[in-house]
């Protein structure tokens, strides 16, 4: 017994070091598996609050570009509105059929208060949280394209796994051919992501537009991602497809968070199929 005490006394600093180091490495490993990093994230009261304060100062320097982006988005939406008007059938105008209105997605506006894009695993922090209706697993986009997926929420802040992250795998397809693939990032350049798992029958050309696929429950189909920059075709297989993002991931201001109102229904149905 005495020898144990002696041992502990002699190596007490080493034991303390070992204990804390194991704790730190455990937190790291937990962080690398998607959706379990519950403790260490910037969606807490202190870091969220500080980022919010600093961002409210930085914001003034970006007003010009932010305004320009908003007006561009307005133009795009107005054009879309004009297009639908042509398709209206005259008889439809007088018919009020409530079953024709059905909402699948709900959008929330939020502001990015912290953004990183130079690390291997990048995240963003938003200034809205569970109090404003955000939950984990919601898609995040802005007017130019896709940004990421909400990972954790606190009452007033939330963290987002950027598409520039090891654990981000997003279903995408080519705008003109409906072949699905998965969007990943190899950690090299923050403007360029990669597509894998695309079937070899797909015909890819440089400059093709890539949009989100309908397979994902988080994103509506057809959200812009980027254009194909280059690719290699070896052994009858696409090896590396680089996608140049529409978004400049280094400068993101306001974003929209998408909630799929039929997510539970879809998940339940898919689970039934899997169980059979």
């Amino acid at each position: 017994m005495q020898q144990i005490f002696f041992f502990i006394r002699k190596f007490r600093y080493f034991l303390l070091f070992l204990l804390l180091e194991i704790l730190a490495v455990a937190l790291t490993i937990q962080h690398h598996s998607y959706h379990t990093s519950k403790f260490i994230n910037s969606a807490n009261f202190i870091s969220g609050g500080i980022y919010n304060k600093v961002n409210s100062i930085n914001e003034y320097f970006l007003l010009k570009s932010e305004n320009k982006m908003l007006s561009e988005e307005n133009v795009r939406l107005k054009n879309l509105l004009e297009q639908t008007e042509i398709n209206y059938n005259e008889e439809n105008f007088t018919v009020i059929d409530s079953s024709k209105y059905f909402q699948k997605y709900e959008y929330y506006s939020a502001k990015v208060i912290n953004n990183n894009y130079t690390k291997r695993n990048n995240t963003l922090t938003l200034n809205k949280g569970s109090k404003q209706g955000l939950t984990p697993d919601l898609g995040v986009i802005n007017s130019k394209g896709i940004i990421g997926i909400v990972e954790n929420t606190s009452s007033n802040y939330s963290t987002v796994i950027s598409i520039l992250n090891k654990s981000s795998k997003i279903n995408v397809h080519l705008k003109n051919s409906n072949h699905f693939g998965t969007l990943i990032w190899d950690g090299e350049d923050y403007n360029i992501t990669q597509i894998v798992d695309i079937p070899r029958q797909a015909k890819i050309k440089i400059g093709d537009t890539v949009v989100t696929g309908g397979k994902s429950i988080m994103f509506p189909e057809g959200i812009n991602v980027g254009i194909i920059k280059d690719f290699t075709f070896e052994n009858n297989q696409y090896q590396k497809i680089n996608v140049l993002l529409f978004n400049d991931m280094s400068a993101i201001g306001y974003v929209e968070v998408i909630k799929n109102l039929q997510k539970i229904e879809q998940k339940k149905l898919e689970q039934q199929v899997n169980n059979e």
Binding site: R12, Y13, L16, F17, L20, E21, L23, A24, V25, A26, L27, T28, I29, Q30, H31, H32, S37, I40, N41, S42, N44, I46, S47, I50, Y51, N114, N116, K119, N121, T123, T125, T159
Partner: peptide, 29 residues
């Protein structure tokens, strides 16, 4: 002991802000 605990907390506070798990805590310790 104060140095070890202090540097662990130092790394952890940086981790809190940069969403990196326990990476900085492990290295600083």
């Amino acid at each position: 002991a104060l140095l070890l605990i202090g540097s662990f907390l130092l790394g952890l506070s940086v981790d809190f802000f940069s969403d990196s798990g326990g990476v900085n805590a492990a290295a600083t310790l």
